Computed example of a mutant assay.
Amino acid sequence: MSGVRRFLSENSLSLGFGLLFVVTLAGQAVAGAAQLSEERQDEGLGPVSLGHYLTSSSFAVDVMENWQSEYLQFSLYVFATVWLVQRGSPASKELEAVGTESDEEQRVGAHARADSPRWAGAGGWRTAVFSRSLGLVFGALFLLTWAATSVAGWAAYNVDQLRSHADPVSWVGYLGRPDFWDRTFQNWQSEMLAVGSMAVFAVYLRQRGSPESKPVGAAHPDTGATG
């Protein structure tokens, strides 16, 4: 197998989803520009170009509010599954493994192996940070995208305010408006439902060959097993 083919094969999951992300984001941009043009024509205004729409607050808030909800899902999932378990779910640790586990189980400090990441065996603050790096990065991305959502939503809200000849509001004032929290909770509740559904459905249902599922023949009470 050539080097390029090997690289594509070994990274097909990230490359596949990266390509799907670009395609779907482009589709959202084209569809969103068309929808905004229709709305403007109904108001007696001219259509907007794709380039203008891509730099608009409408596009920014739609993208950011979805990104922040996804990063919320993963950051909560990473942190919650340290302490919360679900009997029979492959998305859960085994019932007796609740908590951060021992250094030996986690292969850190003196228990790090030759092929362990350098900071796993470094000790001190480096191991402490590396031990929580996945959750910290997802948590930071959630906070950044939530902040970006608030700014983009504020700009979009003020566009609507000016269009209806109402006074614009400050960013701090927007944070207390129902519009901001309506956008926020719409996304958050859907993520909580999706994560909870996955944890429960995977107890009784199977997807052959998927690491998100237990082996097809695994008993329903088996916890933490993946196929």
Results as ranks from 00 to 15, higher is better:
T127Y: 07
R107K: 13
G123T: 00
R113G: 12
N158I: 04
G153Q: 01
L143I: 10
F130L: 02
N158H: 04
D115E: 08
A152G: 09
G121K: 09
Q161S: 01
F130N: 11
A147S: 09
S131I: 08
T149A: 08
G109M: 11
S150R: 12
V159R: 08
A128N: 11
F130E: 10
D160R: 15
F130P: 00
S116K: 03
W125P: 06
T145E: 08
R113S: 14
V137S: 10
D115H: 04
A156L: 04
A122D: 11
G123W: 06
F130V: 01
L144H: 05
L136A: 11
L134M: 14
G123V: 06
A114Q: 15
Q161G: 01
A156M: 02
F142W: 11
Q161P: 09
V137E: 06
P117Y: 03
D160Y: 09
W154F: 08
T145H: 06
L141P: 01
S150G: 13
W119L: 13
A140S: 10
A114M: 11
L134I: 04
D115C: 03
W125Q: 01
L144D: 05
A148L: 12
A110V: 04
L143T: 03
G153I: 01
W154Q: 01
D160A: 15
D160G: 14
G135Q: 00
S133M: 14
A152R: 02
V137N: 07
G135D: 04
A122I: 08
L143M: 02
A112Y: 02
D160K: 15
S131E: 12
G123E: 00
A147R: 09
T149C: 07
V137Q: 03
W154Y: 02
W146R: 15
H111V: 06
H111S: 07
L134G: 10
G121N: 01
G153D: 05
A122G: 00
A156D: 06
A140R: 00
D115F: 09
V159N: 11
A114E: 13
R126S: 00
V137L: 12
S133H: 15
A152H: 02
A155D: 07
A114F: 15
W154R: 01
R118E: 14
W125R: 05
L144W: 09
F142G: 02
A147I: 06
G139D: 00
A128Y: 11
H111I: 04
A152F: 00
H111P: 00
S116T: 02
A152P: 09
S150H: 09
W146A: 15
L134Y: 04
G153K: 05
W119M: 11
P117D: 06
A120G: 01
V159S: 12
R113W: 12
A128G: 03
N158E: 00
Y157T: 11
L143D: 00
L136N: 09
P117H: 10
A120V: 02
A148H: 12
V159W: 06
G124I: 03
V108H: 07
T149P: 05
G124A: 07
V129N: 07
V108F: 08
A112S: 12
G123Y: 04
W146D: 13
